[in-house]
Amino acid sequence: MFVDQIGKFTLSRLEAAGRWTLFSGASLLHVRSGGALGSRLARSVFELGVRCIPVIAIVSAFAGLVLGLQGHYVLSRFGASGMLGTLVSLSLCRELGPVLAALMIAGQAGTALAAELGIQRSTEQIDAIELLDISPEGFLAGARLFASLLVFPSLTALFVIVGVAGGWLSGCVLLPQDPDAYWAAVHSALRGRDVFECLLKAAVFGLLTTSLCAYQGFNAHRSGEAGARAVGIATVRGIVLSSIAILAADYLITAALL
């Protein structure tokens, strides 16, 4: 009985993964369906990107401040406080920047996307789009997926820049670190390969987050609930699955590129 239930659960998860793959493929393939692609792309960049700038700036500033503080404390114990710039810049660029930025965007824009599509599903707006002979996946999610390829790397770059500045503020203004040594360490530590890894992770996280949140909202009616409750479940599933996917993909990309 127990094995039977595990089998059924596994099959249902595999089926959902298959539907998500098909949904993502259809979204990208039929992005032109329904026309007005330019305005949909612009709107997606605004919703995914511009609206998230304040939260990205605030979180990255505090992340940099804490890294500067902790880095100064730990490195001083080993007489290596001159390495603070290296620690802050590499931590932010290779790991913290892409992951934290993606989690922040998922928390703000991803949940909004899942809720919006969930409401459109429960109010039959998606059925109406389908009957207009428009691909609802392409029309509602396609432009957002393409926008995420631009928005996530851009916001991640912003996160790293503000974070490094936060590390400088914490280590060199509030604590007695040498600013010249800090910036020299930042400059010498970061290489093209690190920046590539940072932007690659950001783009992958963007696609994963946007497609998972859009998929959950789009399929809110499959949760077994209806109306507002279905929208709530879709939103929660969107953010939870996105967070797991971001951390899992982070490990896989890091392992592959090291």
Partner: peptide
Amino acid sequence: SYVFQHNALFDSATVRENVLLPLQARG
């Protein structure tokens, strides 16, 4: 065309955009 029981209007689009979309879709 199909008129839904609860209208299924596109709530983030204006009245004009709601009516324009079927024409845009047809192309």
